[in-house]
């Protein structure tokens, strides 16, 4: 700086005048007292909860690598658990589908055996209605297995393509084996024979006739002489009659019937 009074002042010299605008000592005494009070107030004052955010931000900045690693590990663990959970659920579904197919195939083979047994009138003495009842009873597991299969197929929509493909292939293989045997009317091989034997062993009551059925067939044999001839028409008629009449009504009505050698008499 050039402070020569005779020299023209410059802008820098004029601006240096502002440096001389300084307060006195009393100002600094007051300044220090006020600052001390504000400082103590700042120490005592309870800071709001959102003032903790800068601390968290600084902490995150300082430990960003560790926090990032932990976050990545947590995300990977979460997705890994999800993947494992989905895999376990698929395995459980596949096992259930397989069991359902196995039940279905076993039941179909058993029902096929019952149907084939009912189709032999010479060897079985039970009326055809009994066979129909047995067939109906035997068909229930089939329909149940069909429902199970349908529910399994509805679950297949949530399966993965690979799981669906495996299930479809397994179902096709089972269906081909079972349906082929059914349509051909042959039970070849060890498995179908064992299945039919197992069905016979499993349901012995299906082959037994109830006392009411025996009584009904005995009464109907005496009431309808044509039954003795063993014709198909008379058999159907007796079946219709038996189906229409209840037990009480049958007893009541039989008392009015008279059976002769060549004619039937009815009392009114």
């Amino acid at each position: 700086m050039n402070a020569d009074p005779k020299e023209l002042p410059t802008l820098e010299n004029l601006l240096r005048l502002k440096r001389a605008e300084t307060p006195g000592p009393e100002f600094w005494t007051r300044f220090e007292a006020e600052l001390r009070g504000r400082q103590l107030a700042a120490i005592v004052e309870k800071r709001p909860w959102w003032c903790a955010f800068p601390k968290v931000y600084v902490f995150a900045l300082r430990h960003n690598r560790q926090i990032g690693s932990v976050a990545a590990l947590a995300v990977a663990s979460f997705f890994g658990y999800q993947e494992f959970h989905a895999f376990a659920a698929n395995a459980h579904r596949s096992a259930r589908i397989q069991v359902a197919y196995m039940v279905r195939s076993d039941t179909q083979s058993a029902s096929a055996r019952v149907f084939s047994a009912a189709a032999k009138p010479a060897s079985v003495t039970i009326p055809s209605r009994t066979a129909a009842t047995v067939a109906t009873v035997s068909a229930e597991p089939v329909s149940h297995a069909g429902l199970e299969l349908a529910s399994s197929q509805s679950d297949d929509a949530s399966l993965r393509p690979s799981a669906r493909l495996i299930a479809a292939t397994l179902a096709a293989a089972r269906m081909n084996g079972t349906m082929g045997g059914e349509f051909a009317g042959l039970q070849t091989g060890f498995e179908p024979q064992a299945a039919s034997l197992g069905a016979q062993m499993d349901e012995p009551l299906a082959n037994m006739t109830t006392p009411s059925e025996e009584r009904r067939s005995r009464l109907m044999a005496s009431a309808v002489p044509a039954r003795a001839t063993g014709g198909g028409f008379s058999e159907r008629v007796s079946e219709r009659l038996a189906s229409r009449l209840s037990d009480d009504r049958l007893y009541e009505q039989l008392s009015r019937y008279g059976v002769g050698a060549t004619a039937v008499s009815i009392k009114f």
């Binding site: 402070a3 020569d4 004029l14 001389a20």
Partner: peptide, 18 residues
């Protein structure tokens, strides 16, 4: 404004020149 401190010789000379 604060009062200009003229105790400083540089400031005093500058004020005199201006």
């Amino acid at each position: 404004l604060e009062k200009i401190n003229e105790d400083d010789p540089v400031s005093r000379e500058l004020i005199a020149a201006v």
